[in-house]
């Protein structure tokens, strides 16, 4: 087991009583996030989809690397690692219509 820290983004700190980071012990990214979910129920629904993968509007970075480009949830962690939950920050001014996307809150939206 490695001792790592998970960075919590501002929009999700309501699930961690305002804490900006949560220390956990884990061997992989998936284990670390599962431990986060045990400590703070409800947060994982905002981070992972039904298959246990990062949601469309969430990135998980281990250090400076996106875990999607590493070994996903199986990416091993080491003592001192920092795992950052990064909300996708997006939007736009005009509407062309017809596109369908999933919102961060999990509801479908048709523009």
């Amino acid at each position: 087991m490695s001792h790592i820290v998970i960075r919590i983004p501002t929009p999700l700190r309501g699930h961690t009583a305002g804490a900006d980071e949560v220390p956990v012990e884990a061997r992989s990214v998936g284990e670390a996030l599962a431990r986060l979910g045990e400590l703070h129920p409800g947060i994982l629904e905002r981070v992972l989809d039904g298959d246990g993968q990062p949601r469309q509007f969430v990135n998980i970075f281990l250090g400076s690397g996106n875990v999607r480009a590493l070994d996903g949830m199986n990416t091993p962690v080491r003592d001192g690692d920092v795992l950052a939950i990064i909300p996708a920050v997006a939007g736009g001014g005009h509407e062309s219509g017809g596109c369908k996307t999933e919102s961060p809150s999990g509801t479908d939206y048709r523009a």
Binding site: P9, T10, P11, R13, G14, F57, P87, A88, V89, A90, G91, G92, G93, H94, E95, T101, S103, P104, Y109, A111
Partner: peptide, 13 residues
């Protein structure tokens, strides 16, 4: 905010 801004917005910001 456009509908896209609303759909992709996060609370607390």
């Amino acid at each position: 905010p456009s509908p896209t801004d609303l759909a992709l917005a996060w609370p607390g910001w």
